[in-house]
């Protein structure tokens, strides 16, 4: 059960194979085995969202996902090459203070933008706040993160 296995997955568009214990956290696979340290550990128990990544398009807490659950999956992290719109919005709006929540927030905002870019109406304030409610920030009071999300959505619209 706990014997290491050959985990095959796609990370940021590149096929990767790593030999890991089946219950190793995806967070550790990314940070330690694949040296993708952009994904952060804030609590290790699924409460802060700093370790958010996409697994097959779903935003998940990578500290709660075991290696054996992502066999053959498509994983996207903050190091993915196609997040420039959201990252630029954070830079311009001052969305990052200490920055430890920022990688997770960038992905949460990307999920929000993906969901809302094609819709015919603007999200209201509660819909926007709800989209980011799985990611905690201790620095900003969320104001400038919300501003970053609005800017990113505006620019993603056709």
């Amino acid at each position: 059960m706990s014997e290491p296995f050959e985990l095959e997955l796609t990370v940021n568009g590149t096929p990767r194979t790593v030999r890991v214990a089946p219950l190793r956290r995806l967070l550790d696979v990314l940070r330690e085995d694949l040296a993708l340290t952009g994904t952060k550990e804030g609590c290790g128990e699924g409460e802060c969202g700093a370790c958010s990544v996409f697994v097959d398009g779903e935003l998940v807490n990578s500290c709660l996902v075991a290696a054996c659950q992502v066999e053959g999956c498509d994983v996207r992290t903050v190091e993915a090459p196609d997040l420039g719109n959201v990252q630029a919005a954070f830079l311009e709006e001052g969305g990052a203070q200490c920055g430890i929540c920022t990688p997770g927030m960038v992905l949460a905002v990307q999920a929000f933008v993906d969901e809302w870019a094609a819709r015919g109406r603007e999200p209201d304030d509660v819909e926007l706040r709800a989209a980011l409610a799985g990611n905690l920030c201790r620095c900003t009071g969320y104001e400038k993160i919300l501003a970053s999300a609005r800017t990113a959505l505006r620019r993603a619209r056709p």
Binding site: T77, E92, G94, G99, T102
Partner: peptide, 23 residues
């Protein structure tokens, strides 16, 4: 001026290195 933070881009792209990133 409301200039960008010196480390803003590194933080937004996950390149900024924190103590736990030292390996």
């Amino acid at each position: 001026q409301p200039l960008r933070k010196v480390d803003g881009l590194a933080k937004a792209t996950g390149q900024a290195l924190y103590a736990d990133d030292v390996q």
